[in-house]
């Protein structure tokens, strides 16, 4: 804020940052606000379509998949890699949630290290953030593959045939929009994670090359950090809407 003293006369002479945040940071905030609206629209669409479809009314233990009602989420997402045939409801998605929260934590630590101009620590924590993001994407790839291939038993559809897994036209878990919304919303979030990991790699490269050390501040780490936390924030909502409710 040392520039303020130079332009004593009027704030219109420039040299001042509105809201005491740099241009880049402010624009990142407003971009994230608009992105929040996009995700809200998607999740509200999910809620609307879900409540338009009949819910399963029987006992939870006797639940079976049927295209006539919306499935119970914990009955759909109960598979874990390497543990084939064992019902572990929501365990895998719980692991994914913690991976993303932890990669958000390492990002905060990278930003904090940046404030102290500690290049080595920024490198270390950015590295862990990238690892966490990549691990999350790997988990999601497995989750999608499992969702598409389906269970061994499959589900008898309305026309009498047995169908396994899911595509955009029909799925074994419930009404067609169930799989469509799953693909679209977790896919849109996954695309955000992917672009976040790519941005993190670019910034990590710059950190290692000493670009920000020369510049005198690590604000780029902060900006990409804002985006990364937003991705985690969206997951918190996707997690509630898709896997819990």
């Amino acid at each position: 804020m040392s520039t303020i003293t130079v332009n004593k006369g009027s704030i219109w002479n420039g040299g001042q940052e509105p809201m005491k945040a740099s241009y880049g940071k402010l624009m990142m905030w407003f971009f994230l606000l608009s992105d929040a609206f996009t995700f809200s629209a998607l999740l509200i669409t999910y809620g609307t379509i879900r409540f338009m479809n009949p819910a399963y009314s029987g006992v939870r233990e006797e639940f079976t998949f049927s295209p006539t009602y919306w499935p119970i989420p914990e009955k759909v997402y109960e598979a874990v890699p390497f543990l084939h045939g064992i019902s572990l409801p929501l365990v895998f998605v719980g692991i994914m949630t913690f991976i993303l929260i932890l990669s958000s934590v390492t990002m905060v630590l990278a930003v904090e290290a940046g404030h102290r101009m500690s290049q080595k620590e920024v490198e270390k924590w950015m590295m862990w953030t990238i690892v966490g993001g990549a691990a999350f994407l790997g988990c999601q790839a497995w989750e999608w593959a499992h969702f598409i291939h389906g269970t061994e038993a499959g589900t008898v559809m309305k026309d009498g045939t047995t169908f396994f897994g899911a595509n955009l036209i029909q799925n074994q878990y419930g009404p067609p929009p169930f799989a469509n919304l799953f693909f679209f919303i977790t896919g849109f979030h996954g695309t955000h994670v992917l672009s976040g990991v790519i941005l993190n790699i670019i910034i990590f490269y710059n950190v290692v090359m000493g670009v920000y050390e020369k510049r005198g501040h690590y604000e780029m780490v902060e900006k990409v950090g804002l985006y990364w936390h937003f991705v985690d924030l969206v997951w918190v909502f996707v997690f509630t809407c898709f896997y819990l409710v």
Binding site: A21, V105, L233, F237
Partner: peptide, 18 residues
């Protein structure tokens, strides 16, 4: 969401108008 935005994204420590 509040904890992520306020603490991780540091919004709590920005100026009020922001």
């Amino acid at each position: 969401a509040f904890y992520i935005v306020a603490e991780f994204m540091h919004l709590k420590h920005e100026v009020k108008s922001l």
